[in-house]
Design a binder for these strands. Structure first.
Lengths: 340, 340
DNA sequence: GTCGTGTGAGAAAGCGTTTTCTCACTTTGT
DNA sequence: ACAAAGTGAGAAAACGCTTTCTCACACGAC
């Protein structure tokens, strides 16, 4: 009648089979206190025979911890957030934690509700919500703690934060173009309400101030391939000699659109991306971009969250400065025809 | 003394404040039975004042369901699995379910343990484990039910399964190349132990049988960009006029490597991918590939899992036949020099 | 021989819910 | 008016565990 598989047997079954109390089984399973060697062996044998494993739910309830954390990202379809998730997931796995994941894209208006609901099922939360209004975030955070923020530089002080410095990061990119000789530039912006778009704009504003001879225009783009692809037509015939795309995805869409239109990159037009997603180095031509260590961002988020969970003071906030990755989508502008 | 925020108050606090028993609070919160209108209002007021929400853990323990399902994927860094995850996640979210995600890449040898452990924390599991030995899978499944399998055609019958038919899917691809005039082809294979690689090989074998005049050689590749990139050097000087890459990632790596070597695609060499990941249409040249509806795969997996959870009989297994997506990375072979 | 002092194991009290069981208090039927 | 049937709410059991509290027993010390 010994079934080595089947539905989970409760601790009481093990206790009964071993002829001891549940307390003793619990003690054995958790390696607690000193329990007589012979009895412990009997318990272990019984547990093995019944294929016993403690019910994690019951365990969580009584212990007040789930060894699970939530990760909320705005779009599971975006390589950047995918990598963040992967970074958190891997790091957390090493510490024996599981990930509860949610994609807020579907329910942008109820992002807050979603976050709270997720949070209550686990021990802590990593919040990547670039477009959540600051006020809402501030309201929410007390309910969410322990929490770590990704890419919410404005919220520094509210919770441990890991960020990429998009403002500083775009500077080398645009300076690179300037150094190549570009003076008429376009910035194909992302969603205007996004914090990181604002940061890029600040960085670009600083650039303009430093180089009054350069002209930089912001044009509406988006955050996805399609947005870049769509923008190609407008940009192809324009007077711009270089365009900074909001991110790599948009840049790739643009690259593809331009190729279809017969515009040569970088000969006719230089293009830059942002993020350095894995595919950026495999585009044609390989994309000049600002490299953001997203996996690292996820890992560092986990480190801080873990500290909070075990009641240590987390490491200081970290702000990754993206580094310029020069590839082949940028080159000096063609000799202006006006010279002719 | 009314704190509208703060640590979660238990149901007993609400009961006390409303001057009723916990049972009544529970009934009100769950809209059960008929409870006196006046009392119900009092309870709701108390709950609101205390910002009460039932503890999901306790709820799960007693109700025996968590409204959470696990998704196990072999690599969170791979666009294909990312899309599957997204597909499951979105569909599950619509039904009010959360996703517990795990990346087995780190612990390939303990994939089984991981699966069981995840499964015990929730109501069901979606298993995407293309390289798990069939015997292990069969052993594991009883413990995992309810479960749904993705891309394990060999396991049909053990659990509801959604698959892409890689064997049938590669056929139109290679036939397309054959029709273009290619007779010397290379298949840049993935991991030999993977089920979907075996399926592709079967499809290709059938092709060879049907076209004795064509020569097709299998060469070792891999599953990632880097693998394709690395293979470029070998393939560049070869006599092959077309190469079928294991998947789009490999194809893109290959494209990039070939571009660096000055090999023109498709003029000098035709290249195909597999999967039709979002970026495939934005490569240069856009990639001819077999389109696998991965998001759909995830969604269908969820549908079946949901059925199992609510004790309905799930829809029949579904086997998506990838469809040929002809883009611009394939063309007739260059006129052979041997003719000269 | 009595008094600490350990030691090891069982009993019981939670953890925060839901749900069944009970029962007091109306209504209704006659 | 009196039993039968309904209502609505509290008490208590259950979910499966961990942990504190208790206590029986055996040991050396005085």
């Amino acid at each position: 009648m010994t079934r080595t598989t089947g539905k989970a047997s409760p601790i009481s079954a093990v206790a009964e089979r071993a002829g001891v109390s549940v307390s003793t089984v619990s003690r054995v399973m958790n390696g607690h206190a000193t329990v007589d060697r012979a009895i412990a062996d009997r318990v272990r044998a019984a547990a093995a025979a019944l294929n016993y494993a403690p019910n994690p739910l019951a365990r969580s309830l009584v212990m007040g911890r789930t060894t699970t954390v939530a990760v909320l990202v705005p779009d599971l379809g975006n390589p950047t957030f995918q990598s963040m998730l992967q970074g958190v997931s891997r790091a957390a796995a090493r510490d024996g934690y599981r990930i509860l994941v949610a994609d807020s894209a579907e329910t942008i208006s109820e992002e807050g509700i979603l976050a709270v609901e997720m949070r209550r099922r686990c021990d802590a939360i990593v919040l990547c919500a670039p477009r959540m209004p600051a006020a809402l975030l501030a309201d929410l955070l007390p309910e969410l703690m322990p929490a770590v923020l990704i890419n919410r530089p404005a919220a520094v002080g509210l919770a441990p934060t890991v960020t990429a410095d998009y403002e500083a990061g775009i500077r080398p990119l645009v300076e690179h173009l300037y150094a190549l000789g570009h003076r008429t530039l376009a910035y194909l912006q992302g969603k205007p309400e996004s914090a990181s778009n604002a940061a890029r704009l600040r960085g670009l504003a600083a650039f303009c101030e430093a180089h009054p001879d350069a002209e930089l225009l912001t044009v509406d783009g988006g955050t996805a391939f399609e947005d870049g692809h769509r923008a190609a037509a407008d940009l192809a015939g324009s007077r711009f000699t270089a365009v900074l795309a909001f991110n790599d995805l948009v840049a790739m869409g643009l690259l593809s659109g331009l190729a279809e239109l017969g515009v040569r990159v970088p000969e006719d037009l230089s293009v830059t991306g942002f993020d350095d997603i894995p595919l950026a180095r495999y585009t044609t031509p390989p994309l000049t971009t600002a490299s953001v260590p997203v996996l690292e961002l996820g890992e560092q988020a986990w480190r801080r969250l873990h500290s909070l969970i075990v009641n240590e003071t987390p490491a200081d906030d970290v702000d990754y400065r993206p580094h310029l990755e020069v590839r082949r989508s940028t080159a000096p502008p063609a000799t202006p025809r006006s010279r002719t």
